[in-house]
């Protein structure tokens, strides 16, 4: 029983040893392991070997960084600073709210502005048609489609065209119908 417990303790020490070496263990736990080390040559040997390997590693020579290369790296890092101050912050801090705000604005404002624009244009066209109605033809109805199109019905048929070109087309239509009317009278 005691031997089994000791074996478990030694197995645990294989992990705890690193925390012991880096002095990350709480005082009481540190003392427990020190007590164990006094009576366990196996764990004492493991600890000494680990220390030996780390000491050898620390003494192994390593590559040097040239002063000129260091200065270059420093200069480039400082020059690489983005001009826009907000970009210095992690992108998530500002990009996410900005994207959300832009999405909402697009969802709510753009269709509304477009509708207002269509309605304004429709009113202008309708007024124009009403003014011409008595002289040339009757505009029986005018409605808007989802696309920026005006659909209106005259005694000459159903017309569908882009709103921005409606007025120009009305002028053409006016001429056409006038000629047609003259021809009919003749």
């Amino acid at each position: 029983m005691a031997k089994s417990m000791k074996k478990n303790l030694c197995a645990d020490f294989e992990q705890a040893m690193w925390l012991l070496l880096s002095e990350e263990l709480p005082g009481a736990e540190m003392q427990d392991w020190r007590d164990h080390l006094h009576v366990c040559p196996h764990c004492q040997k493991s600890l000494n070997e680990a220390r030996q390997i780390l000491t050898i590693y620390d003494k192994v020579p390593n590559a040097a960084l040239d002063e000129a290369r260091y200065q270059d790296a420093l200069h480039i890092a400082v020059q690489a600073e983005p001009k826009w101050r907000a970009l210095r912050e992690p992108m998530l801090y500002w990009a996410t709210p900005l994207a959300l705000a832009a999405g909402l604005a697009l969802f709510w404002l753009w269709p509304r502005a477009n509708t207002e624009s269509l309605e304004w244009q429709a009113t202008a066209v309708e007024n124009r048609l009403l003014l011409m109605q008595d002289d040339i033809y009757e505009a029986e109805s005018l409605e808007l489609s989802d696309a920026p199109l005006a659909i209106f019905e005259t005694n000459d048929g159903v017309w569908e065209m882009e709103l921005r070109s409606v007025e120009r087309e009305i002028d053409n239509l006016q001429l056409e119908l006038a000629l047609s009317s003259v021809n009919d009278r003749e």
Binding site: A63, L65, V78, E81, R88
Partner: peptide, 19 residues
Amino acid sequence: LAEDLFQDTLIKVWRFLPG
């Protein structure tokens, strides 16, 4: 490669140090 990574590290440190 380590020199390039050193460069990249310095750029990131300089950029994110305010955080």
